[in-house]
Amino acid sequence: MKYFPDLKVAVPPVELIDLSALKPLEPLELSKATPESATSEQSATCHLDANQPDQRWLMVEEFLQATPLEPNSRRLYKRELQRFFQWSDRPLAAMTPALLAAYCTWLETTPAPRTGKPLARNSINVAITALKRFFAWLGTTHPRHCATNPTTEIKWLKAEVTPPSPLSTAALACLWGTLPSLGITQYRDTLLVHLLCQGLRVSEIVALNLANWDGAQLWLPATKNQLAKNQLAKNQPLRSMVLHQASRVALEHYLDWRRQHLPESLQPDSPLVISLHVAHSGKRLSYIGIYQAIERLGQLASQRYRTIVASSAHPSPNDEQTQQQLANLHPDQLRHMHRTL
């Protein structure tokens, strides 16, 4: 090592390198394990230590416990937040608007494993809502983890509203013919079909108590949207619905069956429609419970229609379509039947 007395510093010897002997750099192959690794912004920030517990999920669990949510919303939020944190391995403090935008693009373009198609816009909007609510809560409750809300600029997608196709006359007739064979749920599910066919929403049916029925009409409680437009309607009946004669008969038959077969005392605050599942018998039938009941009814009606077609001497070219309508039955199809009944 040479010294320069005037500078009083030591300079190491220079070693010449033959550049022709160096191997060319190989192109970097991005990992496909995490979808976020395909984004250009990933290298600009830190990532989680794989050997440490994921503190992000502790925050998610705290958010779900601290936020008043309906059971169905809680389940959806948990699923969407889990999807996001599987997609990205960034710490909460490293989340950026560009990352959230990249994630929304990924949702719009990446086929879902179950369907092989990208998520529908309504499903993506659920994911956006879950992220917006989580990061808004995080910025308020734990600002050191979220100094700036990264979801502020994320916009909901304009949903494509596709009205459900109305049931054919043959499908509706088969549906009514299937109800008497349902056993213990016959009277309840018959009432559900009547209420849906008169235009009631599933959420409205879930909220009904016996006090909402006066023997001729239903007094429907205000929805959240209606309350937002008319604060004076809070905790007051907002509108009434006069039931058709057949619907009134179905409701009274259902209540008579409950009085005779269930060990319950019918009170004004008792739910109008109850679950008959062993684990939840007598409790209010949930939103998901109504969907499952109608889907089960559709499956049974589809099987019944298949049997009818097999024994028919004059099959119809629309038989396959009718069978598919029944097999894929959901409450919204029945709710829109009131326009054609």
Rank of each mutant, 00 (worst) to 15 (best):
Q236L: 09
A216V: 10
A207D: 07
P143L: 00
T307I: 13
C197Y: 00
K117M: 14
I274M: 14
T151A: 03
Q52A: 12
P163K: 09
F63V: 06
T115P: 07
G183C: 07
S168G: 14
I205F: 02
P111M: 09
R56I: 00
D319I: 06
I290A: 07
L326T: 06
C197S: 08
F134W: 05
E61V: 03
P91H: 00
V273G: 05
S43D: 13
A127R: 00
S123D: 02
N122M: 03
Q292V: 03
N209Q: 10
F85P: 10
L22R: 13
H142I: 05
P268W: 10
L182F: 03
A33G: 12
A33T: 13
R248H: 14
L76V: 11
C46Y: 15
K132R: 13
V11S: 15
R259G: 03
L238F: 06
K32W: 11
A173E: 12
T34H: 11
N51Q: 14
K229I: 07
L272V: 08
F84M: 02
S165L: 14
P166N: 03
L341N: 11
K283T: 14
Y254P: 10
P263I: 01
A173M: 13
P71C: 04
V60L: 06
L175E: 01
P163F: 05
Q217P: 08
M95R: 01
F135C: 06
V9L: 07
P221S: 04
A293S: 14
K32T: 15
V202N: 11
L175H: 01
T129M: 07
C146G: 01
G177A: 13
R56E: 00
I154P: 09
W57T: 02
L297A: 01
Q333D: 02
H47F: 02
Y77C: 04
R284L: 08
L192S: 03
V161N: 08
H314L: 07
A313Q: 10
V202G: 08
Q292K: 11
T151N: 01
L58A: 06
Q333R: 04
Y103Q: 00
N235R: 07
F134R: 01
S31N: 09
A233I: 09
P53E: 04
E70P: 04
V202Y: 04
W137I: 02
P150M: 00
A293G: 07
A327W: 08
L100W: 04
D6N: 11
K23G: 08
P180Q: 03
A21Y: 15
N328F: 11
L157Q: 12
P166G: 06
T129I: 03
S270G: 05
I290L: 10
V242M: 09
L210T: 09
L175P: 01
I290S: 08
V193F: 09
M95H: 00
S88L: 04
N72A: 12
I184N: 02
R284H: 03
L208G: 01
V249Q: 15
S73C: 01
P27W: 05
I288Y: 12
G199I: 02
S165K: 15
A301F: 13
A50R: 13
H47E: 06
R258Q: 04
N230E: 14
E204W: 07
N51E: 15
Q325R: 06
L220M: 04
